[in-house]
Design a protein around this nucleic acid. Sequence first.
DNA 1: AGCACAAAGTAAGCGACGCTTCCATTTGTG
DNA 2: CACAAATGGAAGCGTCGCTTACTTTGTGCT
Lengths: 207, 207
Amino acid sequence: MSRGTKRRSYHHGNLRRALIDAALELVSENGPHGFSMREAARRAGVSSGAPYKHFPDRDALMRAISAEGEQRLLAAMDEEMARAGTEPTARFRAMGIAYVKFAVANPSYFRVMTMPEYLDAEQETTIQGQEDAVHAIISSAQASGAMTADDPRVVSLAAHCLVYGLARLFIDGHLARDGIGPQQAEAVATAVTGVFGRGLVPRKPDQ
Amino acid sequence: MSRGTKRRSYHHGNLRRALIDAALELVSENGPHGFSMREAARRAGVSSGAPYKHFPDRDALMRAISAEGEQRLLAAMDEEMARAGTEPTARFRAMGIAYVKFAVANPSYFRVMTMPEYLDAEQETTIQGQEDAVHAIISSAQASGAMTADDPRVVSLAAHCLVYGLARLFIDGHLARDGIGPQQAEAVATAVTGVFGRGLVPRKPDQ
DNA sequence: AGCACAAAGTAAGCGACGCTTCCATTTGTG
DNA sequence: CACAAATGGAAGCGTCGCTTACTTTGTGCT
C-alpha cells in the first residue's frame, strides 16, 4: 500500500516493507541523520508506536536495510560477473566496477550498508564469504600466470580499498566538485581500476 | 580546565575547547551517534544552554572538530613529507602512508572529518589546495620519467581512493576481523601502496 | 459457525535531546 | 567606577526513541 492512499483496514498489510521504503526515502532526502521512526511511521500512515511491532528498535530497522542492500549488491555483482566471462582478471575487474556502479545507483542502501554499527553477525559472514570468493579469483589468476604473485590478501585488500574509496567519494559528493557525476561512474571506475590493474600484470622478459 | 575539577568561577575559562574535547571523547566512546550537546555540556560541568554561546548549533560544533582535524592532518602529512626527501614518487607514497597513519592514530577526528555534512566551504577549498599539491607531485614525477604518463587526475583519484578506503576499513573495524590491528597500519599501508605504485612505474625496454 | 488467541494496530506517557528565551553574573574598558 | 558585552544558568517548547496498556482484526480449532 503506497503512501497517500488511505488504508481501509485497521491493519496496514505490509507495514514492514512500507517502513523500510520510507526510511530509504528519508535517508536519500536528508542523509542517515534525517531518518526517524516517527517520521517513517507518519509516511506509512500509522501511529508512532506501530513500527515497534516489526522492529525492536531503530537500529534493527537500519540493520534490515543494510542486510537487504547487501543482498542486492551481491545479486548485482553476480550478474555483472556472469557477463564478464571466465577469464579471472576480467572477472576481478568486473567485480570492482559492479561494486562502484551499485553504490552510485543505490546511494541510500550504500550509505546504510557502510555504517559499521548496522552490521550484524550474519552479514559479517556473508562479507567473509565474498572475500573468500575474491581470494579464489586472485589465486586463479595467479595460477594461470595472468597476475603477479603478490600475497593475495594484499591484492584483495588493495582492490577493496580502491573500489570502496571510489564509491564513497561518489556518494559523499567529493567528485561532484570536479564535475564528475554519477553518469560517469562506470568510466571513472574503468580508468581507476585500469591504473591499479597494471600493477598486477606480470613483467615477462618477452614483452 | 579538565573534567572532574570543579571550576570556582562563574565563567568556565575555555568552554569552547572543553566542549570540543568532550565531543571527541563521546565520539570515541559511542561513535558519532553517541554525541549530544547536553552530554558534552555535562562533562564540561556547565548547563545545557551554555554551549550555544560558543556554537550556534550541534552541527557547528561538529564542523569545528572537522576543521581542526583537517589542520592536524595537513600538519602530520607535511611533517612526514619533509622526512621523505625530494624524490616525487617517494613523496607521493609518504603522503598516502601519512594519511592512513593519521586516520588510525586519530579515529575520532577522522570519523567526523569524513562526514560530508560537516564540510564547510572553507574546508573544501583547503581540500582543493591539497589536491592541487598532489597533482603537482604527480606531474613532477611524470616529468622526470619516474611515473607513467597517465592522466594525473586519474592517478590522483585512484591514490585518494586507495588511502581513503584503507583508512576507512581500519576505522570501521573491517580489518580487525582479519586480525589486523592499528599497530600494523603502517606496514599494511606500505604493502598496499606498493602494489598500487607498481602500476605507475614506466616499463623501459632495458628492464 | 463460533470462539479463543495471536498478531498488529492505537493512545498516552516517560525521559532525553536540540534549541530558544529570559535572566544572572562576570569582566574588560572608557 | 559605571556599563556594555560576554558568558553562564533556569526553564520551557517540540521532537524523538521507546514502553505500557488497551483495541481491533485475522486465524485455526472444535
